[in-house]
Design a protein around this nucleic acid. Sequence first.
DNA 1: ATCGATGCAAAGGGTTTGCAAGGTT
DNA 2: AACCTTGCAAACCCTTTGCATCGAT
Lengths: 137, 137
Amino acid sequence: MLREKGQRFSKIRREMALVVLEIRRHFNADDVFRELRRRNVRGAHLATVYRTLPLLVQAGIIQPALFSSGERTFYETSFERPHHDHLICTGCGLVVEFELEAIERLQHDVARCHGFELTRHFHELLGECGSCRSASP
Amino acid sequence: MLREKGQRFSKIRREMALVVLEIRRHFNADDVFRELRRRNVRGAHLATVYRTLPLLVQAGIIQPALFSSGERTFYETSFERPHHDHLICTGCGLVVEFELEAIERLQHDVARCHGFELTRHFHELLGECGSCRSASP
DNA sequence: ATCGATGCAAAGGGTTTGCAAGGTT
DNA sequence: AACCTTGCAAACCCTTTGCATCGAT
């Protein structure tokens, strides 16, 4: 695999990379840990998962996500995926990804306005999805 | 004070409300706790602060903020303040508040597009401010 | 007098760390 | 062989909770 950003390449890291690349949803450390066990990666340890996740971020394979969802640190795959933000249903937890060029442009405008050079942004819209709205008046 | 949303009104709560209304910056539970001690509010306890913060949110006096900043739960005063989002310098931690009607409108458009009814949003722009940029090439 | 709020201490849960043992280069 | 990773367990930190007491209505 393509992840020599200065780190060594162990079996566990390989397995973790495979796992996160295959996960479609957003995940946290424990999700990865449980998936590793399910695959019988012998003795994969939760501490190792915690130690490796930041490396995968650095390598550009995953990125943090879903900040508004409270405590847990969530990630999503970033490798070969276009940029997007999230629309989250507060009723059922449904996550929809969206991307709007116009918003991106305005964000840069705002930053420039204040003398900032924009590097990242977190943008999450919370609301109620159609199904939840029709379910509860 | 104007905070009878169904809760009782104790001395500690009164003091806490005063503190958070006077704080200008973003703050966490411990900031409030230390400020209470500084003011010699006798024996104000950290557990009480943790218990009271959600009540102040419910009462519309404060609101959670700065989600991308990692672990700690931060708040800011919301009482009689217009809506705004944050532009944060990753170099020095400077926080600038901004508000752009156009972005707000686009957010609602996006939500509606996907059948969502928008209730809240988190929008944080991260970058480097002017001083930090000139300090480090 | 009743019911909720507080102090205290202890538990809780996710995350991090020190160290010895095992892998990678 | 040198150095990095891992497993393990213990430490950490912020936050929450149980319980007896104190305070508000």
